[in-house]
Amino acid sequence: MAKWGMVIDLETCTGCQACTTACAMENSRLPGENWQDVLFYSEGDYPHLNVSWLPRPCMQCENPSCVSVCPTKATFVDEGTGVVLVDWNKCIGCKYCMVACPYGVRFYMDEAPVVEPDVKAAFPGEGRRQVWNPPFRMPDEYADPSKGIGVQPKGVVSKCTFCHHKITQAPEGVADLDEDDPETREFTPACVRVCAPKARFFGDLDNPESNVNRLIAEKGGVRLKEETGNRPKVYYLSGGGSPVVPGQRSKRRS
């Protein structure tokens, strides 16, 4: 079985947010509640200003704190892929997983909108649990509430699935899912597939022949917040630079 992981090259990423947009279209996300996002940070004042950015999907941890804290096992690690998923049929909406996630990549559906206008009001859903009816959505046959795939219903938590509905269709034993390879293009996660500068790579971390393993080894891939012990399966290449995420304190003006 594959252990799917992602490598993001920060030296190549332009912060264009194509990944964010593709993820939102693929997974019917609300604006501002992006499973995949590019976070922007600024330090200083014009004209002495430094802007940096960090693409941030779910880290798909090997030892995920969100799974440990879920009282109903609604959040679980899929055995076949190693992907962390949410069973919407079991989620009680306690939000403990959101509290416990060090990376802030979980979203609850029944909150005030993060950004205006409220698209939920513009595209109202039908029925008690369907909050909105997105004008863009994946084909219904891909939707699987037991894995948190589809239009997120009311009162449950959702998160990035590594496009589980796509990667599980990939040929058995393949080392990497690459948009440049016609044989694996359709099975590549949306954020990886649309990355114009090719800053994202997706492959099997358990396969020594995979491109992701080569990149991590040769370019010194690092993981975020190692101190939490969550062991993310998303690696960042920073060209040997310093840690990439500015803390809240480092942003403070002196």
């Binding site: 009282p71 109903t72 079991k90 989620c91 009680i92 909406g93 306690c94 029944d110 009311k154």
Partner: peptide, 14 residues
């Protein structure tokens, strides 16, 4: 909670 009654069975069963 959004689904408090579910907690009553989903918690002990899982």
């Amino acid at each position: 909670l959004s689904n408090p009654l579910m907690a009553l069975w989903a918690t002990p069963l899982n």
